[in-house]
Nucleic acid binder design. Sequence first.
DNA 1: TCTACGATCTTT
DNA 2: AAGATCGTAGAT
Length: 194
Amino acid sequence: MSLLPQSWYYRDVIEVARDLLGRHLKRGSVVLRITEVEAYLGPHDSAAHTRMGRTRRNAPMWGPGGHAYIYLCYGIHNMLNVVTGNGDGAAVLIRSCEVVRGLSVVRHRRQGAEGPLLLAGPGKVGQALDLSTQLSGHALFTSGKLELHAGGPATSIRKGTRIGIAYARRKDVRAQLRFADGDSHCVTGRSALS
DNA sequence: TCTACGATCTTT
DNA sequence: AAGATCGTAGAT
């Protein structure tokens, strides 16, 4: 287990998004391996939360890379993003993970849901990590409540369009900004990926 | 203040 | 195909 340094995040958001596949998220005794992500480019990306400028909610996205941006979606789900670059307004949404360690804890947090080894969908990842917006802005590169470790990067990567952003401009809807580990079945909408 | 709606998930 | 559920952002 080795923490990735803050400099690792100071790169183009697409580069970091692809590099996040296979890395490990740690929350207490729970360790998850990232299998699916989406890149949100910045204020010029009409699907990104930074499209409306700086707000209280999206403040972490405008800060230095290496921090979490967590927000409540549909009043129910806590979505985890990894902020990249330095003040770019860009971040990577963590969409799916496999449970590496702490299965019993994950099962408890998910209230006995089936197939807890595969967390396909960002809401499930949020449940497994017991996330709340209280943790938004938390640093991922130092020891703390939520950490990102090196794990082992994915060798095969598939890509496709982002999910749930029909409101965005056509060019942004069509952009190939969703990435998944080609060797994992823990992915949403796998058939739409190439 | 008020209102509409969402980077989702589960059940019908 | 639709309901759950609530904070956010933009409008008033």
